[in-house]
Design a protein around this nucleic acid. Structure first.
Length: 187
DNA sequence: CGGTCGATGATT
DNA sequence: ATCATCGACCGC
């Protein structure tokens, strides 16, 4: 069962947690690529200094200001794409970054990191703005993990974000082998 | 092992 | 100049 728009239109932190155990599906021509989401990060709004929308409404961040349930895919470090789901009502710029999936079908290579899972599932900026309540890219119900298996931590790679750097907005299934290794950048 | 660093290009 | 990353390469 495909998750409806109302699922995404909620509070970002809630969506980030609720996404664990769900199945990300990319219908790539005749190939179906899918994986169970095991790690996410919440970027909770324009007031969140780690959120790209903190820079205002630009060509890149525009999609986050739109309605929930759309893909926000951007290029990072000139080499990797990162896949996000837009959350909250229209006008409220926020999203959830998917950082790790356990492969189910059609994945080519590792999926334990935001850049890696995009590469493995053939997700690129060409998918930016795509409606997740559609037929090419969507998320299925899957099976939610028990509450006690959900752990949280500070987000990865956002040390520049002042007090927002330390907030526990990263969620993952504790002990899952497809959770990315949380390397903290030394400077 | 762990840490350090370069690749590579869009965005501001 | 910076960056919501990754993997190669170093020294122990």
């Amino acid at each position: 069962m495909k998750l409806p728009r109302a699922f995404y239109r909620r509070k970002t932190e809630v969506v980030a947690k609720d996404l664990l155990g769900r199945v990300l599906v990319h219908i790539d021509g005749d190939v179906r690529r899918s994986g169970t989401i095991v790690e996410t990060e919440a970027y909770v709004g324009a007031h969140d200094l780690a959120c790209h929308a903190a820079k205002g409404r630009t060509a890149r961040t525009d999609v986050m200001f739109g309605d929930a349930g759309h893909a926000y895919v951007y290029l990072i470090y000139g080499m990797y794409d990162c896949f996000n789901v837009v959350t909250e009502p229209e006008g409220y710029a926020a999203a959830v970054l998917v950082r790790g999936v356990a492969p189910i079908e059609g994945c080519e290579g590792a999926t334990d990191g935001p850049g890696k899972l995009c590469r493995a599932m053939s997700l690129t900026r060409a998918h930016n703005r795509l409606d997740l309540v559609g037929d090419r890219l969507f998320i299925e119900e899957g099976t939610k993990p028990p509450r006690r298996r959900i752990a949280s931590s500070a987000r990865i790679g956002v040390e520049y974000a002042g007090e927002w750097a330390n907030k526990p907005l990263r969620f993952f299934i504790d002990g899952d082998p497809f959770v990315s290794r949380a390397r903290v950048r030394s400077k």
